[in-house]
Design a protein around this nucleic acid. Structure first.
Length: 206
DNA sequence: ACCCAGGGTCATA
DNA sequence: TATGACCATGGG
């Protein structure tokens, strides 16, 4: 698919921290709305852990408002920044082994498995495959998984079958999300259109 | 008016 | 382990 569609412009950001913030803000939310929230943070000069920790909840929530769930995301972003600072920042955390770093991320309030893996893959450059709703939907349609397996079961399946190239992990997830948007939700509206849209994935998965 | 989006937490059984 | 309620904005 990379050959056919070329590299997607994926997870644009000026810093590792911006990627991490984006990973939390994009939870069940369109990227367009996340960009607005990120823009608010930048415009306020608050796109850094210290500024976020220093801001009052009311103000932080107002910056995050466009990304939805602004009250819970304010708390989640706060807890994440607290963890980041407490552990010496990105540079220090980068020294950890991937499994330990993943467990550390999962211990943070507001960081679940998918968010943790987004951060591991796109901010810490670790070869971890991100499983999202699109991955389940597309690959269950292809008959390669049932779809309701545990997150880590599907993750290990992908990681065992696709080698270890970091760029492949980043690119494949990007392609899945970009194309997953065009695939019908759980109940196919029609077999024809779904099969046509899924054609792009055949050959890369067989 | 309805459905959905690049999820996670918490209570409950 | 496995559901369900809840969070909330913006676009189709």
């Amino acid at each position: 698919m990379s050959g056919r569609y070329g590299p997607r412009y994926w997870w644009p950001a000026d810093s590792k921290f911006e990627i991490m913030v984006g990973a939390i803000l994009t939870q069940n939310t369109t990227w367009k709305n996340v960009e607005r929230a990120l823009h608010n943070l930048k415009r306020a000069g608050a796109l850094d852990p210290d500024s976020i920790l220093a801001a009052h909840h009311k103000r932080l929530a107002s910056w995050l408002r466009p990304s939805g769930y602004f009250n819970v995301k304010s708390k989640r972003l706060r807890s994440f920044c607290g963890w980041l600072v407490k552990n010496g920042g990105v540079g220090e955390l980068q020294r950890m082994q991937t499994p330990a770093l993943r467990n550390a991320l999962l211990s943070v309030y507001g960081v679940g498995r998918e968010t943790a893996d987004d951060i591991l893959l796109y901010a810490f450059d670790r070869p971890v495959f991100v499983i999202d709703a699109y991955t389940r939907r597309i690959f269950s349609r292809l008959g390669l998984i049932q779809g309701n397996e545990d997150y880590d079961v599907i993750r290990h399946l992908f990681e065992s079958k696709m080698g270890k190239r970091l760029s492949d992990y980043k690119e494949y997830h990007a392609l899945i999300v970009v194309h997953g948007r065009t695939v019908c939700r759980p109940t196919p509206c029609c077999e024809e259109c779904c099969i046509r849209k899924l054609c792009a994935f055949r050959g890369t998965t067989s």
